[in-house]
Amino acid sequence: MASQPGGRAQTHLACVVNGDPVDITCAGYKTLLEVLREDLGLTGTKHGCELGECGACAVLVDGEPVLSCLALAVECSGRAITTVEGLTRDGRLDPLQEAFADLGAAQCGYCTPGILLTARALLDRVERPTRDDIREALSGNLCRCTGYQQIFEAVESACGHAQPTLRRAQRGPEPVEGPRTSACGSREAPEGSEAEPSRRARAHGGGAPCAVNNAGRGDHA
């Protein structure tokens, strides 16, 4: 089966990925996983076995979760594919993404894209899934970090179960706000720009100031 690399049999793939039309030529032996990651640069889709035994490579094809490692790229022509990169819409994270980030549902983050897409398909099909529904829907996605519990809670939170999400201040910057900027050297804090300083903040303990002009210096305790 030796053949000239680059001279390998090529195939043509025309489909829609995350809403964008894609029309490419790629090696004929490739699965959707390889094309997404290697030909389209969409590395958000992961892989843990390439044999259909872990669920890390799950993407949505025409809205249904499938394993991209077992889908021939050539068989995806004409289909609509959604990867984790396509979950974010209009600069906003999907509610599932917000909940996963807030509630500890992503630890190492490697199984996360596959789980997010699988959960998205579930919520698109069932508005208010039960814990058992969620367990079953995610039973094709192995997670080695979380023990799944915070994942279940995040899915429940994203579809409006009574699970508190974090205050925005604990979430980090929102794209619409951007970091607050003020010119260096401005003499006063912007009027009313800050909340009442917290009383329970700890006071600075003093000690000798040490200016370090070169951050590269080791300074051992």
Partner: peptide, 8 residues
């Protein structure tokens, strides 16, 4: 198998 594999 799994929901994903049953989809396929």
């Amino acid at each position: 198998a799994t929901p994903h594999l049953r989809n396929m």
